[in-house]
Every structure is written in C-alpha cells, then in structure tokens.
Amino acid sequence: MAKLLEVEDLQTQFFTSAGVVKAVDGITYDVEEGETVAVVGESGCGKSVSALSILRLIPDPPGRVVGGHIKFMGQDLATLSDEDMRTVRGRQIAMVFQEPMTSLNPVLTIGLQITETLQQHLNLNKEEANARAVELLGKVGISDPDRRLKQYPHHLSGGMRQRVMIALALSCNPKLIIADEPTTALDVTIQAQILELMKDLTRELDVALIVITHNLGVVARYADRVNVMYAGRIIESGTAEDVYHYPRHPYTLALLRSVPRMDQPRKAKLDPVQGQPPDLTKLDKGCAFRPRCNFAIDKCTSNGPVLETIEKGHTVACWQHEKLLNALETA
C-alpha cells in the first residue's frame, strides 16, 4: 500500500514563561492509505499537539514546529503557503475534535456550516451543496436531515453533534481524517455508535484515520496499528496485536496492566504505574520514563533509547526490551 502521510522527526515546542516545553520531541511514523492508526498516551504526552502540527494549527506564539518534515502524498506540507495549506485542510485532511459542543459554531445553522465547507472547497453552488449536505447527514445516521439542516448546534445532543462533525469531515471526500478523542465526551452506548459509524464509513470510503485517544479499549477495537506516546516521544509502535499481546516497552506494559478488565477475573489490587508524568520543561537526554520504570538501568539516565525495530513492523525505544521479554516469558 502507498504511504499517505509520512511524519519524520517532528518537533513542536511551546515557548512559555516557565521555559521551553518540548511537547513533541522528534516523532516519526507513517500512515498508509485506508488504514487506521491510533496514537495513545496520557494527558500531556503530545498526542494532540502532534496532530495539530500536521495541520499547522499550532498557535504561534507560544508554539512552533521547530523541526522535522511532514509529507502528505509525497508533498512537504511545511513548504506550502498558507493559502495552499488551507486547501489541504478540510479538503484532503479533515479533523474531528473531542468536544462537539465547542467545535461547531453556535450561531450558525448546521446546514450553513456544512454547505459553507462544500462551497469553499468543492465550488458547488447552493442547491448542489444543500443536496450533498442532506446526503451526508443521512450517511452519518441523522434522521430527518432536511429539518436538521435548519437547526442550530444547541438543538442537538452530544452524539448528534459528533455525527455532524463526522459529516463535515467527510464532506469533501478527504484522504485522511484525524480524530482527536472523538468519543471521550460521549456516553458508552453513544461512543459505540459513533466508533462503529466511523469504522464503517472509513472502510466504505477508503479514508485513512488517525485516532488519538487515551482509551486502550477503543484502540483494541478499531486500530490496525498503534503508536504509544510518552513525554513527547513515540516509545512503542506496532500492529495492535503485537503491542497488546507482546508489549516490549515497560510503559506500554504498565498502561495495559493498570486498567481493570471486564473479561478477566477481578483482581484484588490494580497494578498502577507509580509516580507522576515528567515536567516537559525539564526533560534531559535520558529516557523520560526511567523514574517510574521497574527496569531502569544506569544507561537509561545517560542516553535516551532510540526507536529500534525488533521485528517486522514492531519498534520500541527501550534499552531493556530484551529483559522485559525475558521477564514476561518467565512470569
């Protein structure tokens, strides 16, 4: 399959009064056409910032992409003018945000917000845009689309608004959709509906999807490949099966072990990662996870591990990954 998006050594920093925050600190990954890639990690690990960097939506100041390349269909996005970038954004790469309450304009009707996009990017006239908007709303499972077009966002429930956001994202037949915590604000049954819808539509329309989430269950259900992030870096990457069944980074293992699972017998105690995530202004050369890591050795302090491929399609950034494997096998 062809590579759709290539992110190479992306670095995004925020220049604040407290110091330079290395929100994204050299991440490299790619997305193939039509596949679903998940980016998982906890708050502040840089997963959202990395996505916004791709679309050049980092507020500057205080933030700036300070290094790396982002290639989309072979084209380096950094070289595009603002004008050209605007045609990529929305037209070829669309975004679905976490908060459907705030990402729609409260004073414009649903219809206007969808037709505006269609008229802007696809040069449709008003009638064509309207017809397409009705079709789109139907596609994302909104009943009575004609009536909904005339309504405002506050008339809709959270789940409905997220469906509208998905309709908007799909409106210009993009090649890639970036969904940033698309279901975090929704209830479980509505979350299941929305994720099912996104999966079906991305398959049907052959759209690639980057899902940013902290929910390990969501990743397991929907992703082909997974990138695990910690403190601005990708620390492990591979197919969902590899990462979940054979985690090779202590942080991935700790994450998987710290959630209670419904399919396993109830445990007396959970097994949490100790300590707090690091302060991103005070990162050093070493591995950022080492203060919380059970496998840390002296080498982890002096120089940070780089991502190395341990088997086809499975990479990990840890000096101790062999040790971890041995420990898991003997356990």
Partner: peptide, 25 residues
C-alpha cells in the same frame, strides 16, 4: 451497556459481537 465497553485486547475485540443500542437517550 456491557457490550458497548471495549476490552483492551484486539483479538477478543475482533471476535466479540457488539450489540449497538440504537437511538439517543
């Protein structure tokens, strides 16, 4: 509700049958 909760295991998730409730609250 129980069927809607994803389990953090891709092998189980791909085999599992999901019963999605229709409609809104």
């Amino acid at each position: 509700l129980l069927s809607a909760v994803p389990i953090p295991d891709p092998t189980i998730e791909h085999k599992r049958k999901h019963q999605v409730v229709k409609g809104e609250i």
